[in-house]
Amino acid sequence: MSRDEPDAGREWRLTRRRAVLEIRARMIQALRRFFVSAGYLEVETPARIPAPAPETHIDAPPAGDWFLQTSPELCMKRLLAAGYGKIFQIAKCYRDGERGDRHLPEFTMLEWYRPASDYRDLMAECEALLPFVLEALGRDAALVYRGERIDLTAPWERLSVAEAFRRFTRLTPEDALRKACFDERMALDIEPRLGRGRPTFLYDYPAACAALARRKPTDPDRAERFELYVSGIELANAFSELTDVDEQRRRFETARAERERLGKADYPSAEPFLAALGAMPPAAGIALGVDRLAMLLADADRIDDIVAFVPEDL
């Protein structure tokens, strides 16, 4: 096609994007190398599934009678239950209605699980992963994103959700939940201030905010969940995984009831997952947004800039 054809503008945009897509490709190759050399098995699970995990605010796009996965979590946990040990996956995931500077309705997730571990082990693994990727890209131990220098030297900041609310709002997490403004305070007052100068692990969420996480043995009102932030960007979400079948079933029912109250689609119960969960060893699991990591490494302001195509291009 000649460069003067009507689509030349779009073609040119792709040409322009090539340098960034090369960074993205090298980053994904480095992620694979990290996990393979750490003894993880790379797995693939179906993107189209009959019963997504019910979560109040995450909507799976329908695909025929089934759904597109919002994360590969349930199938990967069945592999854990079958004794696969340390596993990782780089998977396309789908979430209806999520479109913004940091959201695409189809995105790429890096998800990994390690048995006989809890969320603190995953924090340490994140502290090793990011410097490994940076080194693979020929960078030094500091990331510069939008002019801000982020020092990746371990240990990174560890900040509890309760402390973050104390520091950045006038509410406790429990007050915020009662007043139904937990998400607003988190998104508007807390998240933009995290991961400044060095990454932040925001940890120990109210149990109500973690449908698939284990409660803290020493504080059952909190769940062993953390989110990783870099320069105000939420990069990863991790749990010490819940392995109690009855409690998991109750939490799914709570989420389904909440979805029904909000007029959202109901999903069938994920019975094969619940049947397998009893055999799952204690484990920790984490999902990291590959596109967001590419944004950080390519110094991109918008998620649109680190993928070849966004929905609006198609």
Binding site: H57, E98, R99, D183, E184, A187, E191, C209
Partner: peptide
């Protein structure tokens, strides 16, 4: 306009709006 969604939380739509008659502006989520 900005779409924000804290991890596992609900979608929020942050807008800056301009009154087309008197030009006054404000932010609302």
């Amino acid at each position: 306009f900005n779409f924000v969604k804290p991890g596992k939380g609900q979608a929020l739509y942050r807008c800056r709006l301009r009154n087309m008659i008197n030009g006054s502006q404000f932010e609302r989520t």
